[in-house]
Amino acid sequence: MPPVGPRSGDAIFANVERVNAELFTLTYGAIVRQLLTDLEEVEEVNKQLDQMGYNIGIRLIDEFLAKSNVSRCVDFKETAEVIAKVGFKMFLGVTASVTNWDADGTCCSIVLEDNPLVDFVELPDTCQGLYYCNILSGVVRGALEMVSMKTEISWIRDMLRGDDAFELQVKLLKQIPEEYPYKDDE
């Protein structure tokens, strides 16, 4: 059996089961709407969306690894590229770009020009503080945590707030080394 290299985002996207994009968008909208009703505070909704994303991310990473054949990234730069080019394509059907690297290569921006989550969405005045797509930052944080990278993720630009794109800042806090999990005299 010849070794199989990493697969491209397009190839995987063509092969996975997909749901109708409008159904997906509307379902997500309904979830956010319900959270706003239940939690009342916009800040709480942001937190809840992030937590939901995190819970998705810690599971999604295994599906990502199993289907993409990505084995390891040499550095954080490659990791960011893989998220933008393969990860986003595979699960959202869009490709993102990576820019704004800082000098140490630990902080960058993932820019989404196109975001299927926000089709048909307009933020009313009462929800100006809402990060509508906060679930995405949770997903990325959760997935990276499972591959031992602690990250901090924040929105820099948001089209729903009048910016021209979605920009997600990903900051690598630390990488956790693998340690022997048992105590000696257990």
Partner: peptide, 17 residues
């Protein structure tokens, strides 16, 4: 896997790759 899942399969010594 990079996410830390380890799968170990013990088989007959003459099984292939």
């Amino acid at each position: 896997s990079p996410s830390g899942i380890k799968i170990i399969l013990v088989t007959h010594p003459r099984t292939g790759d």
